[in-house]
Nucleic acid binder design. Structure first.
Lengths: 158, 158
DNA sequence: TATTGTTATACTCTATAACTATA
DNA sequence: TATAGTTATAGAGTATAACAATA
């Protein structure tokens, strides 16, 4: 407890402002991590990553979609989607079908097993979201989704 | 245009439900990616990653915090924080100060250059968030932060 | 025994660039 | 020339497990 040296206090600055808490980016990251970790934990046994699930969901939603279009909808590169579709194909969830008019593209089609797996996973995820987000009322959850969707739809230049 | 084979349509299922859009996790991921990419673009020249910035922010906010506590606040492992503090120390933004009572811990202290860099970065980020989130009113932004904070504070079991 | 900081390691996710085959 | 799918590669970012020093 000696007051001899003050080795670092001399050049140390007092903290101010709790501005980090007011940044949307910071709060979004923290909230996203909570939900993301929960998703991983829930879907681990099914081997569904977030990307795998959402790719399957969009193929179910838009049958005959091409890989390029799907990648664009998911906000990722075409190249990154290849392994994901490979995986879905190996599971028998999705088929790469040739397109008569254009031999460059594949039409991605959901198979019965894929549709069943999608429905099961979706129910599981929804139930868990409800549980995880119990701190938010239904109305708040609705508002949150709407606000997130507005951000999602922002066009980023370049 | 021949109707000879129907090679894949036979086992292909029609899509249904656009339920992906109603999942909070999916919308959160998409929104987070938009903001995250914007952050990267803005902060690239300063060499600030999101983790680096938020670590600095919390050291400014809680001077003399330990690495373990800081890691806990950031929601990451102690081990992952080492390289981040190394980086901040190399820049002269933060100092690892020894603590008289306990020789195991460091008290992380912001230095003048660190405080200045933090303030500058914060202003830059806020300005860009305002611009990026122009699609949302101030009230909506406020609500969004509050909802995200509620999720942030959810205690995840185990 | 428990905790702090550290290192080594590996894993997940993703982007970039180059290639091919088609258009 | 441009586009779809593919491959190889590299880079973040992170977790896990082990370790030494200290409590």
């Amino acid at each position: 407890m000696g007051e001899t040296k003050k080795p670092f206090e001399a050049q140390v600055i007092d903290g101010d402002a709790s501005d980090l808490d007011s940044l949307i980016g910071y709060n979004m990251k923290r909230a996203y991590m909570i939900i993301q970790n929960d998703f991983r934990r829930i879907m681990k046994e099914d081997g569904f990553s977030a990307s795998l699930f959402s790719a399957l969901a969009l193929v179910v939603q838009y049958p005959q979609i091409s890989q390029s279009k799907l990648a664009r909808m998911l906000g990722m590169e075409r190249s990154g989607l290849v392994a994901i579709i490979d995986d879905l194909e190996k599971r028998g969830y999705v088929a790469r079908a040739t397109v008569p008019g254009d031999r460059r593209v594949y039409a991605l089609a959901p198979l019965e097993a894929g549709l069943a797996a999608y429905r099961e996973a979706l129910a599981k995820i929804k139930a868990h979201e409800d549980k995880l987000l119990g701190a938010l009322s239904k109305g708040e959850q609705q508002i949150l989704v709407e606000l997130l969707r507005k951000i999602r739809d922002i066009e980023v230049e370049k």
